[in-house]
Simulated assay, not measured.
Amino acid sequence: MLLAEGNWSTGATFTLLGFSEYPHLQIPLFLVFLTIYTVTVVGNLGMIMTIRVSPQLHTPMYFFLSHLSLVDFCYSTTVTPKLLEILVVEDRTISFIGCVMQFFLACACAVAETFMLAVMAYDRFVAICDPLLYMVVMSPKLCTSLVAGPYIWGLVSSLTLTYFLLTLSFCGSNIINNFVCEHSVIVSVSCSDPYINQMLCFIIAIFNEVSSLVIILTTYIFIFVTVIKMSSAGGRQKAFSTCASHLTAITIFHGTILFLYCVPNSQNSWLIVKVGSLFYTVVIPMLNPLIYSLRNKDVKESVRKLMNRSIRFCQSFLFAKEI
């Protein structure tokens, strides 16, 4: 089926309602989300830079963490600027192509993050269950392949869903009761039969969620058994502490997604869906770098060294300027 001609000839546009039902909260929400986005950008780009310039962080675990930060940065940047825009301007419209592109990028990032967390679980499995061969097993070639997998599958999943969205036709009022162009809301305002798109989205979403959770749960079962068998209490504590940040990130990310799957299909559920979508598209990308930096001694030490180095550089620059 080819792209519906009407989408191009009429220049179909969508209206993102966002949180317009609360007009008195538009400016406060703008300031809150601007702060969150600023922290997200600084946190994730700072994490990437810290890992890149700190030799002690040049290990597989931090290599994967840097890519998680990259995905979070891209994910938030795909969604948040448009959210900020519709909070302060009266024109809340977005073009058909703009809406589809936002979905494509957000979907690719979401799927990539889902499996990046699974890859990081495998990394912790090897590190704890086979520590002597960790650097041999987690070779640069394997690490590159493990990172490439989530990106490639994210693009494949997103391209598939986007292609079938492009087969839909739109007529009448294209009002989206959300702040982001999600698959379900785009399909809901279409004039076409939504069955194929809905089933395809359901199958891909269930496959991604179940397969990633199976990988994570399987690896952590082996990790738990290995840790329990350790004779040293200090060894057990160290092993659990290395997994704590990752487990926290997994719980928040997958917990939010599973919660959204369980939202009842009712008129009152739209607000819950919007808040849930807001959490995993805007808030979680901010939380991940905070979780890994606040709970990780190596990252905190590297950040402290970088800050001291920057302070010394600024002091020497100012001193040279005075001379």
Rank of each mutant, 00 (worst) to 15 (best):
D298S: 09
V282T: 13
A121H: 11
L16C: 01
D123P: 02
A148F: 11
T167R: 01
Q102F: 03
G98V: 00
V39R: 03
V225A: 02
G46K: 12
N208F: 08
A244G: 02
I215V: 15
N7E: 05
A110F: 14
P23W: 05
F125I: 01
L168F: 13
S157E: 05
P140Y: 09
I176N: 02
G235T: 04
C262D: 14
C262M: 14
N44V: 08
C181S: 12
K305R: 12
F73N: 00
T80E: 05
A148E: 03
V299K: 04
P264F: 10
V89F: 13
S310E: 13
I252S: 05
G6K: 07
C99T: 02
L213G: 11
V71S: 01
F19T: 01
I257E: 09
V283W: 05
A127C: 06
V41N: 09
F224Q: 06
D123Q: 15
S212Q: 10
L84F: 11
M199V: 08
V156C: 07
S212G: 09
K300L: 10
L133T: 12
C201W: 12
I51A: 11
I128N: 08
V137K: 13
A12P: 04
C74E: 03
V282L: 06
Y163D: 02
T80R: 00
T251N: 08
L146V: 03
S169G: 08
A118P: 10
C171K: 06
L105G: 04
I323T: 09
V283C: 07
F170E: 00
